[in-house]
Amino acid sequence: MKKLFENKYITIAARIILGAVFMYASFDKMAHPEAFANIIDNYHLLPYQLVNGLAIFLPWLELITGLLLITGTWVRASLMIYTALLVVFIIALSQALLRGLDISCGCFSVNPSSTSEVWLRIIEDIILLAVSILMLKYSPIDKKNLTENNNLINQTN
């Protein structure tokens, strides 16, 4: 696994996939903040005072994090935020599943009629979380590390 995530091309592909997922997830939420606020409220996790704020800022955090990952800017910081967000999402979805809340996920769409199995979303998020953690741990994501890595490759060749 270490070897896999040390590969430059695998790292780039993983960054693009992770970034694209978050960017795609942010668009509908940004366009319909009220519907997204309702979905957050339905999770019964936050006091009502915080619901709208989260509905406004969370899609932007997803978009910016995704964009930075795709462009390869501030990758470590973006991955840290990405990992933290995924942990929060997994906790929120799991508690909803355990409490038997009959809610719409709000993961990629704010449309209440969008069919989304919560357990399926949890699995997706766990996979993304695993990739994100492995990248943080093994990938040469800092420029310094990247240069060192490239030098090592050149020396080997």
């Binding site: 903040p33 409220d41 009502y48």
Partner: peptide, 9 residues
Amino acid sequence: NRIQFVANE
């Protein structure tokens, strides 16, 4: 489609 920064109860 803006919303209030702090929701009403």
